[in-house]
Amino acid sequence: MSKPVIATTSLAGCFGCHMSILDIDERILQLIELVEFNKSPVDDIKTFTKPVDIGIIEGGCCNSENVEVLRSFRKNCKILISLGECAIMGGLPALRNGIPVEECLHEAYIGGPTVQLNKEHILPNDDELPMLLDRVYPCHEVVKIDYFLPGCPPRADLIWDALVALITGDPMKLPYEVVKFD
């Protein structure tokens, strides 16, 4: 039987959840025995090259590119996991929710106390740049998500246990110390 295939991505996140994946330490050697990585920053594969069993999503959706990537993950992965607070509830980027986008852009590029060089008051407007959404969306409000692993970042043991449980089909233990929201 071929190894289960894993893909990961970071949307509106800080890559802290990916750091926590690496925080499984030497178990990463076991992990590459157990699974094969496809599209992921871990191996730098940029596009899906085969059907994926488990897709791991870090970060919520703050712009059009995030939505596109998330939808491509849903299309290519059998199981999707929201990893961390940002994927689950928007996290710190969602602090802007409730504030109009125009006001956020104005604060960041024109009126903010540390903005000095932007004398022509230009807002980023290149066609190549993804459009900001009206607010930051949790992943499960955009596509169907199968499992949720909370934490900021989720503890390495939680990620490890979840992956092992999914691969082996055994139930997850979820000890008290590993399920945290911070």
Binding site: I88, M89, A94, G98, I99, P138, V179, F181
Partner: peptide, 18 residues
């Protein structure tokens, strides 16, 4: 209490009130 009841994600949509 979220920990006690193992709330992995709320079943309701987030309101994000200002």
């Amino acid at each position: 209490l979220g920990y006690l009841y193992q709330m992995m994600v709320p079943r309701y949509p987030y309101d994000f009130p200002l």
